[in-house]
Amino acid sequence: MVFQDEIIKWYKDNKRDLPWRHTNDAYTIWLSEIILQQTRVDQGLPYFNRFLAHYPTVADFAAATEQQILKLWQGLGYYSRGRNMLFTAKIVMEMHNGIFPKRYDELIKLKGVGDYTAAAIASFSSNEAKAVVDGNVSRVLGRYFGVEKAINSSEGKKEVNALAQSLIEDQPASVYNQAIMEFGALHCKPKQPLCNVCSLQQSCYAFTHKKVAVLPLKEKKIKVKERRFNYFLCLDGDKILMRHRSPGDVWQHLYDLPLIETTGLESNEENSLQKQVSDLFGKNASYRLLDQIKHQLTHQIIYVQFFALDNYIVNFNKQAEIKWVSEEELKTLPMPKPISVFLKKYVE
């Protein structure tokens, strides 16, 4: 009980004042939890505020179009979250009479809601004793209790989940779950944890065994894939040629520019790019480099080049996914961050 008591005491003294901590409304909590998946609080907070302002109820969210949701989501990454949210909002309207579920066993059935998110919503909205286990919680438990299995392995996850659930029994679930998450985020950090001022140091396995820098153990990450995107800027008066990305790849259903992807493996990649430009935009087409960036995704690094295209012919038969877009329509299109940043710099 000492561990839980100290965690809760620390939380009451150190917690951040965040808007979703002032409500037990399941919809609002769901909104915050999905937005904060894979996203830092300082980055996600403005998005949470915008979404809640635009869609104060689940009915408002369900009435939106996918394009509207993705446009508001633009820049946040992991766009499938936004699409799943829209699907879930519609299901809540159809299957739950517009009342967002609060019980774990109902929440876990919703699209885009996994164990962690279901436990968070259930505990924060109705105090259900379901333990949340995210990266912060796994790190705290891995260090304090000396979990020797890799916390991202199947066996390690089972051990941490069981430990977390055992600790929440007979606790005020909402407060305790938020406390241990916050403790991991602000105090027991991945790097430079505040061990010297920690009230748990003498009972912490990692601290007493000098393993703070070692625990928790993790299996090696998946190898990062490298890709090369070559984008082409085509303007016609106040119109710009845009491309609608198809399913099955990064940024699906978002809009970018006409694209040629190269592998970087050809002995003469420039000649390969020139040939593909000629095939798609005519033999007289020429291009000049405007900008280059490196864009990091979770399992991919995309090296992006932007070119201005001249003397080209638009062959819509070869590129059915492209279309001319007016300046006004461009403002409504959801785009990957590299594209929106580029267009603000070179077009707007």
Rank of each mutant, 00 (worst) to 15 (best):
V132N: 03
W251E: 02
M335Y: 10
R16S: 15
V175C: 14
H244T: 02
A62R: 10
K225A: 11
N230G: 04
G44P: 05
V347F: 15
K239W: 03
Y47H: 06
A173E: 13
L141C: 13
L233E: 06
I302E: 08
S203G: 12
V175Y: 13
Y78A: 04
V92F: 09
N230V: 08
Y231I: 11
S80Q: 11
I240A: 00
S154C: 11
R227M: 04
F87E: 07
Q202E: 14
L200G: 03
G44N: 04
A185W: 03
M1T: 04
M1Y: 13
W30S: 08
A185F: 03
M1E: 06
D279A: 15
Y47L: 04
L309H: 00
F124A: 02
E328H: 08
D17K: 10
V341K: 12
I301Q: 07
Q296E: 14
F316D: 02
Y303H: 15
E66H: 10
Y79N: 15
E266C: 14
K331I: 08
R243E: 12
N196R: 07
K189E: 00
H96W: 14
K225M: 09
V277K: 10
W10A: 08
L254F: 07
K149S: 13
K331E: 13
N136I: 05
E270C: 03
I222H: 12
A129S: 14
K15Q: 14
Y104M: 05
D170W: 01
A122T: 01
K225I: 12
I302Q: 10
Q276P: 07
I168H: 00
E155A: 13
Y47E: 03
T263E: 15
A131K: 00
L86C: 02
L18E: 12
Q201D: 14
C188R: 09
V214Q: 00
P216G: 06
Q38I: 07
V277I: 11
V197M: 10
A164T: 02
Q252V: 06
Y312R: 10
V147L: 07
R288P: 00
S278D: 12
C195Y: 01
T262K: 02
Q292M: 12
K337L: 13
K90T: 00
Y287Q: 03
M335D: 00
T262F: 04
S166K: 12
L70I: 03
Q305P: 06
I8A: 06
P338N: 08
E269D: 09
L309G: 10
F207H: 15
H299R: 04
L86S: 12
Y287S: 11
Y312K: 03
S267L: 14
D291W: 11
K220A: 01
